[in-house]
Design a protein around this nucleic acid. Structure first.
Lengths: 349, 349
DNA sequence: TTGGGATCTGATAACGATGTCATAACTGCT
DNA sequence: AGCAGTTATGACATCGTTATCAGATCCCAA
């Protein structure tokens, strides 16, 4: 048993073994070790065995980045992923899907959180690039992604997820935000609602704008004049969403239904409706599924996104491009699905 | 606007600029560029400006791994993190905390999912090591982690999270599993329960064993003989947990309370109790908090873990060691907190 | 026996950076 | 003016690996 407090250990830190060490121990040249490690042909069975034994004995691990320096393809088998926040269930599902695809190719994934901070977008991307990732999957908040043009020119695949980039043409995987929002609002209209509130995130965020657009378009198509007092933006946490709902309920003519345009906002809305005793009176449809939604009382009707598909499509697109696919950038629009559970089927009184 | 379909672009992929390119453009030697990039002294203001301009113009990004090869400290400013699954809320919270600490130091994080697969443990660790991470934060499932002894000897900080390693002495950050489980069971005993079921994960998992130990010890201390029919292991997804609850409820003398030892299991239990109409009759305390627990009916009493602290402590420990801290390996035990919400306060009929 | 083609092997350059060291140009003192 | 010390700069070796190429050995057919 090796131990940190083991006196044998503390005096001298052993260096990591290199190919040279393995070569010396096996009594061969380093190129031969390289051939064995990379399973190249033209090495005798006996030499292979000797090298394997030496590598085993030294617990040799090749330095992938040293190799990358000289290797023709310059691949690091590494990918950079920037999501909203690795702690958000939506982002976590995207991350997981990307990881699963990457794992098939022995590609490791750097994951970072954007936190809707433009500075973090830049520093994360730079951190990825300095580490020479093979590809990028990015959720962005900067007004323009034109700064990535040089990277595209260098042949680094970049796929944008969840939000469309600006100032650059690149592959993009997004949810059908406006359409999904329309579906939610149409559902509420069909239930007889006319006073439908919109609770959304900062308009700087692409998805927030799109969902609001779907909400507004659908109201207009139905001949319902949007009421500015029923539309609240900039709700970037649960607490703000809860407070907004309290304000709405205090109006002279409060909404009979709420369209909540993001998962954390939906949670805040539920909390607030519950504490006001209004959860069985005011209808609610949320955009993006919420954990445990089916077990709540009433169960929460949502327009569910498909984060696993988003991540998978994005990762596959990166690898397709790495495999040489050369076609114009395109959009992948991932459908949403209205999941009827109860809260959205409450009728106006 | 740069575009993928831009004909100017497709003919020749520009190479990534190197220090040499910047040096040539600025009319200086590469060492001078290196000095400017690394903010080393002894460069005139004028030269700095010229180099900066050239680097800017070429959008130069230094290759951190090429530098690492020669640099004395051999740091890659990279960390490997292996968690249960990046999609699990507990793991995601650990990940987020690690990321926050790492970001302060400009360290990027490789995140991988273990999926309780011993092979994945090995392949993830190897993937990290081949990429020369500065430190490792690991959740493990292999019966022994002795294979990591060589890395410790090489001075690579390794911190184990959530589960204690075997065959090696290294820093470990774990939840007070047995104590937390005891607290849960004591709570149920105090409510008058004697037939308390245990629903847990695979006994190969350290936390599952510890929590079961806490359950058993507490029952024995209270003079309650454990009933084998009330203890179900190997529940590794919600569906199995639900099925197990259905079986329990079908017993002649069903449990009056359930101690559910993991978050996904708790969700399965809730679903099953609900559909059997037993959620207000059978008490439930879960280990690890569950999303929306406070909003369920009844709200779910849990022994909450503190994944953010676990991640933070682990990351700090890695960096302390990288900063030269040299003390014996130690355990960090993170306390749990009983959150009383309703489901655990149901009394036996 | 010889020649020609495989097969096996290692010496050497190179990848993009940093560490070492030498050199040149200043500065401030006697 | 001469010297020492400091500042500014770049040539060159080097990190751990892979690419190139050449040399050695082997096999088989002529």
């Amino acid at each position: 048993m090796t131990s940190l407090s083991d006196p044998k250990r503390s005096d001298a830190l052993r260096r990591r073994p290199t190919m040279k060490n393995v070569a010396d121990l096996a009594g061969v040249g380093i190129k031969t070790v390289s051939r064995v490690i990379n399973r190249e042909p033209h090495v005798s069975e006996e030499t292979i065995a000797r090298v394997r034994r030496a590598a085993e004995q030294l617990q040799y691990q090749p330095d992938i980045h040293a190799g990358n320096l000289r290797r023709a393809d310059r691949r690091t088998d590494t990918l950079g992923l920037l999501v909203g926040s690795v702690a958000n269930p939506f982002s976590a599902a995207v991350h997981r899907a990307v990881e699963d695809i990457a794992l098939e190719r022995h590609v490791a994934v750097f994951a970072s959180s954007l936190d809707e901070d433009p500075e973090r977008e830049l520093s994360s991307v730079n951190a990825f690039l300095r580490r020479r990732v093979d590809g990028l999957i990015l959720t962005t908040i900067q007004p323009s992604q034109a700064y990535l043009g040089a990277q595209l020119d260098q042949g680094i695949p970049i796929v944008f997820v969840d939000r469309r980039p600006h100032g650059i043409e690149a592959d993009t995987v997004i949810t059908e935000n406006a359409e999904g929002a329309s579906g939610a609002v149409e559902h509420l209209l069909a239930m007889g609602h006319r006073r439908i509130a919109y609770l959304g995130d900062d308009a700087k965020i692409f998805t927030a704008r799109e969902r609001k657009r779907g909400y507004l378009d659908t109201l207009r198509r139905a001949g319902v004049a949007p009421d500015a007092r029923l539309m609240i933006d900039n709700l970037d946490d649960e607490a703000k969403a809860s407070a907004a709902v309290a304000d709405l309920l205090a109006l002279d003519d409060p909404p009979t239904a709420i369209f909540s345009a993001q998962n954390l906002i939906t949670v805040g809305v539920i909390t607030s409706l519950r504490s006001a005793g209004a959860s069985t009176r005011v209808a609610l449809v949320g955009f993006d599924d919420v954990p445990m939604a089916a077990l709540l009382e009433p169960a929460v009707t949502v327009v569910a996104q498909d984060p696993a598909s988003i991540g998978e499509i994005a990762a596959r697109r990166v690898f397709d491009r790495l495999d040489g696919l050369d076609e114009p950038a395109r959009d992948f629009v991932v459908p949403t699905r209205l999941i009827v559970r109860g809260s959205g089927e409450i009728r106006p009184s």
